[in-house]
Structures are given as C-alpha cells and as structure tokens.
Nucleic acid binder design. Structure first.
Lengths: 221, 221
DNA sequence: TCTCTAAATATTGCATAATTATTTATCCGC
DNA sequence: GCGGATAAATAATTATGCAATATTTAGAGA
C-alpha cells in the first residue's frame, strides 16, 4: 500500500471558523462589528450554512455574540472583563508553570534564555508583545498538559487583542524584563513556589498598568 | 406601556444545545455514542440545520467530537484527561477562592456551614457529590467574576461526568469532609494563603483517589 | 464457510429555497 | 416638518433537496 497522502479536505465550517478567528484576534474588526452571514459566505466561497456553524463556535469561544434574529457581532470587552481574563491568566499559567518546572530540560531553559537576550536587544515596542509571549509559553510548554495549554493560549489570545499596544508601551520594557530574568533564574534553580509567586505578581502588574492607563484614557468612567 | 412579558422564544440551536448538553453531562450517553442528526432533529422537532449548529457548539465546549463525514460522537476521556481537568480545577478554583475570601459576607459563610451540616447528616454516597459541589461553589461565588465562575462550572461538569460515582465512594466521606470544615474555618479567619493551599491539596487528593481506583479497575493499563 | 467485491442503504455536508423577524422607506394625518 | 402607521426591503432562521461519503448488506467465487 502506497503511503498515500491523506486527501484531507477540511470541512467548510472549520475553514470559516479558523479564518474568522484569526481575523478577529488580529484585530481586523472593531468591537461591535456585525458579521453578516452572506458577506462572510461569499468571502469564503460557501453558503450561509457553514458560516452559521462557524459563528456558533466562535460564540462558544467567546469571540462573538449572537443576538437572536439580528445576527452576530464581534464581542467587546470592558476593562473589568479584561482584568478578569488576566485573573484567569494567573490561574491557568501559575498552575502550568508549577507543573512545568520539574519537567524543564536544559534546552527549554536555553530557549527561554535566548528569547530574553533577543528581547533585551529589541527596541521597538511592537515586537515586545510577541517575544514576551514566546518567553512565557516556553516556560509553560513543559507541563505537557494539552488542554491546559490550549486554554492558556485561547485566553491569552483574547486578552492580547485588547492589551496589545496599550500595556507593553505603558508598562515599559525594563521592569517586566527584569522580572522575566528573575523568573527564569527561579526556574533554573527549581524554586517552584517562588517562581509561581513571582509570575502571579508579574501578571498582577499588568492588571495595574492596565488600570492606570485606562484611568488616563477614560477618566470619567 | 404595559409591562408585557417579553415573548422571548429561544432560538432552536440553543434549545438543542442546552438539551443535549444536559443529557451528556447527566451521563445519558456513553462515551463514543453517535449523535445522529436526523434523530436529534426529530427529538427536538426541528430540522438538521439547528442541530448541526448545536453540535458545533458542543464540540467547542469539548463535549463531543466531530469526525468529518462521519458525524459527531460523545467524547470519551482517558484517566490522564480527567487528571488534567482536575489540575484545571485547581488552577481556576484556587484563584476564585483567593479572590472570594475578602468578599465573603456572613450569609455566605452561614450558607456554607449549613451545607456542611446537611452533608454530615447524609448517609448515601449518591447525594454527596451534589452537596460537595454546592459547598465548593458557595465559597467561590463571592469572587464575583462571572467568566471565571462559568469556566469553573463548565470544567467541573466535565469532570464530574466521569468521577460522579467513582470518587466519592472511593474517597469516603470523612476525610474530604474534615477538609471542608477546615477550609471553611480558614475562610472565616480570612487566612487566604492557608485556605488556598488546603484547597489545592484537597483537589490533589481527588486526583490520588482517582488514580488509585483506576489502578484497581484496569490493572493492565 | 470464508473472503472479496459490488450494490444498496444510510448518513453527512452543503446549497438552494421558503419562512420569519427586523429594519428601513413611504405615506398620511396633523 | 413631525409622529405614527403601513408597506417594502433586508437579513436571519430554518426546512427541504441533492450530491458526496461512509456503512452495511448481498452475492460470487475460492
């Protein structure tokens, strides 16, 4: 039997879902934007049926909201919502870190170190976000818990959609980066409790930065 | 203007989704059971279109799995999967407890106490599960984080589908219940760190019980 | 009897069509 | 002009139908 490449044709609903999700997370739509079904259908070259299935999944993921008989709109998040998602980041990521540290290999630590070095060298704030996340992810991945990791990824995607530019600039680079180095050191030394505590404070710092910048942005609310 | 009751008719996909989810979580289907679209549609008195939307949502929730061109089956979980979900319980619930304790009112503590008293009096293991969860929930609810709480609820639903009978019987009543009393005391005294630590160990205990009973159940694997 | 193949059957996937709800436009009285 | 009712247009929702894929059954040959 020839090792025939499985002719995997992804079902339409999944293509639409993945495409829309990428667009939404990339910030291509503003909050409240209405996703018209025939429009999306035409864009993906299908009928509205697969589109509706995709939209329902994105609804379950919390990216859009369905209004009965009025369609789906891209979900907006309040400051409180984002702060809560940062609490969820703390919850999930501290657990992942705790489980990951005993499993960390030298390569994992080296990879994290390398990211930090590049981070140190980088000057444009726009690049910080991605490197920041790569570093965190490198620390969590060794926990080897696929569901936990995918929840972390999904939650971070939501958060970053709203904090992308704001936080990294506001918080600056030096303080978070200092904490990153400390965090990596603690991982190296296997100091689980201290590392977890630091990570918690590290993300709480993001909460504070966000609150501070938001207070500046809309002082009335 | 008359205070007319809004004639809110829930859309079909949501009815089907909620109905199927309840059935699955109640354990009415065994893992691997195929949910035929015609069958479900007839059961709910609709066509297959809303059913497909409901199934897609349940897929996103992790309750079923879609196999292209073969339909949807109720998802089964391995021991590792359930243990991982208990890790997620620890992650989410320790955070919720930490945030809840400063907000706990006397009524919250009294409600929790009352559940424990009824728990002490109950003799049938089948009732333990629900009371156990009511107690935990009462401790988390004051955190006032709706998304965190709904994640906790969803995750617990998945776990309990597989641990319902197994764990509560295997672990017995006395040890978990002793920990419940301790936990409530720590909440009363506002000892956040100690309470969180105890909760973590409490759920880890469930992991151990589960591993122990599973080792007894299928010794080969 | 067993196995392989092919027809029959069942089921999914998706497009089209019909229905229903909502929004927008138009008209009329004031 | 300004409401307010009515009609047209628009969009969402759901039903139906058909093609594609998978599964089962039946039959032929060893």
């Amino acid at each position: 039997m020839a090792p025939k490449q499985a002719p995997v044709r992804k079902p339409a609903p999944e293509l639409v879902r993945d495409g829309l999700r990428a667009s939404i997370l990339a910030g291509e739509f503003e909050a409240g934007y209405q996703l018209r079904q025939d429009e999306v259908a035409e864009q993906f070259g299908t009928s509205r049926i697969p589109v509706r299935e995709a939209l329902r999944q994105l609804e379950s993921e919390g990216l859009i909201v369905f209004h009965p008989n009025k369609g789906a709109v891209v979900k907006g998040l309040s400051l409180e919502d984002v702060l809560e998602m940062l609490d969820i980041r703390i919850a999930l990521e501290t657990r992942a870190l705790k489980l990951a540290i005993p499993n960390m290999a030298v390569e994992d630590l080296d990879a994290a170190q390398e990211i930090l070095d590049r981070y140190d060298a980088a000057s444009e704030p726009d690049a910080w976000g991605e490197m920041n996340w790569n570093f965190h992810w490198t620390l969590y991945a060794p926990c080897n818990k696929s569901k936990l990791l995918s929840m972390i990824e999904a939650n971070y995607g939501h958060v970053s959609r709203f904090t992308r530019r704001q936080v990294s600039r506001a918080a600056g680079k030096s303080r978070p980066q200092k904490e990153h180095h400390e965090l990596l050191d603690l991982c190296r030394q296997g100091k689980i409790e201290k590392a977890v505590d630091l990570l918690e404070r590290h993300i709480e710092q993001t909460q504070k930065s966000l609150q501070a910048t938001s207070r500046l942005t809309d002082p009335a609310r």
